[in-house]
Design a binder for these strands. Sequence first.
DNA 1: AACAAATGATACCATATTAGTATCATTTGT
DNA 2: ACAAATGATACTAATATGGTATCATTTGTT
Lengths: 135, 135
Amino acid sequence: MSLINRDTDYAIRALCFMAKNKKKFISAKELVRDLKIPRPFLRKILQTLNKRRVLRSYKGKSGGFVLVQPPKKIFVMDLVRIFQGGVKLRECIFKKKPCPNIRTCLLSRKLKEIEGKVISQLEVISIASLAGEIK
Amino acid sequence: MSLINRDTDYAIRALCFMAKNKKKFISAKELVRDLKIPRPFLRKILQTLNKRRVLRSYKGKSGGFVLVQPPKKIFVMDLVRIFQGGVKLRECIFKKKPCPNIRTCLLSRKLKEIEGKVISQLEVISIASLAGEIK
DNA sequence: AACAAATGATACCATATTAGTATCATTTGT
DNA sequence: ACAAATGATACTAATATGGTATCATTTGTT
Ligand code: FES
Ligand code: FES
């Protein structure tokens, strides 16, 4: 029931590392060494981060990845959207969408409220705020 | 990633039905008819609700289930604890517990805050508040 | 006493999701 | 030409979840 899955988690770690490391290009190799994430898995994540333009990739020898935006402007919620399609704390047990009860279902309504609050909290956690040392 | 799973959801529905229905004993049969939940599954849920004393069961012919507490005093969070072992929105990717980074992990810290808020919201949603009609 | 109708306990299966791996193609600096 | 990097994609393994089946026990009714 974790709020963030492994993809998101790994992505956050990778981005934090990049935020701290001022070097221009950072290769998957370096990230693997530092983060101890299985290499093919990390590469997959970096590829989608590239597609979604959170970072930019450069091929070829001495290529690698570069952040496109400053770490203050990358938020956990962005990554949750990319890797998990958003936060859905309420999945109706009746699979048929849309649920016929949705308008009268009080439980659904309450869970929706909670969901909204969670999302707005995730929207203000930036990579920059996670990259620092503990205070 | 749903906050409540099917067991919890079905339990809520069953309890709401019982809250609305003033009859003394309510059998699994009636609940199945009304809620359209697979019978063996519902029975399993009722059994654990009995063990955890949310309701009380009576065997034998014309037996059934009775709420032990008033619906105002049964909260969604109680059911989440029973059927899901609580809310854990932060599962560290390093399975080894306890995680060596836990004290310095800023992400974990932030998610823990969110988790706390979610729990306190679930703690105030009562069965009574879900059993009523929509206003 | 026998029976039927209810719950108790428990073991099992099926399906979906998630985590992780493997492979080959493409680009580019030296 | 080659090595070192990423791109794309398909596959497998492990785990969690949802659901079923079976038999035992209790108890009111006849
Ligand atoms: S029953 Fe479908 S949303 Fe509540
Ligand atoms: S790395 Fe284990 S809690 Fe953050």
